[in-house]
């Protein structure tokens, strides 16, 4: 591995300054489960690695019915899926946070790192989009917020300008008759990168028969995780039944633009988007119905 300077600031202000000083030659270090391997593989040449685990704002973690879910960028996955409040209110976050890597990886990996790493296969990203999460960003010019679906701009690329850090992702409070879910397809049962994945949320009306609104996002089938607007819109006002699910899945397949690689073919991936979207919507609807 190349040489670099390691710093571990304890305030957000210092961290931003340390990042900004080196511009593109600085990288943040959260759990390290992406960045250290990428550095070892020579993907980046950097001068400074800024460990962001000692910054209070990035360690915020709170979950409630009234205020929603705040996940600081340095909060490890296990904290998310072990929280009984998250299990109760945001089961889709449990779905995805608990299948990143194995138990060892989950002890280090963060949702923030997964999002900033901006892999098309990033397993927490479809859920964050489906759950309408907002990314809170701090930089030399202060703080700003972006919807998660706009955060990733290409494979390994994100919205962050030089010197900027992700502070947290914030999921709005869940309303009654709301449900979300996440699934991925991998050839093994664990320890794999998704051939395709899908996160979806649905808001049902009071009768729980009609869908008021929905959000579907699919991964590993394009340069970034894709927010499937048409598929999502197709469900607004639709009956919560198989026909609507089928239609949404077909629309999601249209949104996919995968490539052939060692993990799967174009045909297989488009097919899987259909399968996964249907399965995920069924679970989301059933959760929304409180089943």
């Amino acid at each position: 591995m190349q040489e670099f300077e390691y710093v571990a600031p304890t305030s957000l202000e210092d961290a931003v300054k340390l990042m900004a000083e080196k511009g593109p030659k600085a990288k943040a270090l959260a759990g390290g489960t992406d960045i250290l391997i990428q550095l070892r593989g020579g993907r980046y040449q950097i001068d400074r690695l800024v460990d962001v685990k000692n910054i209070p704002e990035l360690n915020q973690f709170s979950c409630s019915q009234s205020d929603g879910l705040t996940i600081g960028a340095s909060v490890q996955n296990y904290k998310i899926y072990e929280s009984s409040e998250v299990q109760r209110l945001y089961p889709a976050m449990v779905d995805c946070a608990s299948l990143v890597g194995g138990i060892q990886v989950q002890g280090r990996a963060t949702v923030g790192g997964n999002l900033c790493n901006a892999a098309p296969s990033g397993d927490t990203i479809p859920t964050l989009i489906a759950e309408s999460a907002q990314a809170l960003i701090a930089g030399p010019n202060g703080q700003r917020t972006v919807p998660v679906e706009e955060f990733c701009t290409g494979p390994g690329r994100n919205q962050l300008a030089d010197g900027e850090l992700l502070v947290s992702v914030n999921l709005p409070p869940v309303k009654p008759n709301y449900g979300a879910a996440f699934l991925r397809f991998i050839p093994r049962n664990e320890m794999d990168i998704a051939v395709a994945n899908c996160g979806a949320s649905v808001q049902l009306d009071e009768s729980r028969q009609k869908i008021v609104s929905a959000k579907i996002a699919i991964g590993s089938v394009g340069p970034t995780v894709i927010y499937c607007i048409e598929a999502s819109n197709s469900l607004a006002g639709a009956d919560a039944n198989e026909a609507s699910i089928e239609a949404a899945a077909a629309a999601a397949q249209k949104a996919a633009s995968p490539i052939n690689d060692m993990r799967g073919t174009v045909e297989q991936r488009i097919h899987l988007v259909g399968v996964l979207t249907k399965r995920v919507l069924r679970i989301a609807i059933s959760r929304a119905k409180g089943e």
Binding site: A8, T33, I37, Q104, R108
Partner: peptide
């Protein structure tokens, strides 16, 4: 907690 020591820096 269990972690993989190859994915962590000594520092």
């Amino acid at each position: 907690r269990i972690v993989e020591s190859c994915c962590i820096l000594g520092v």
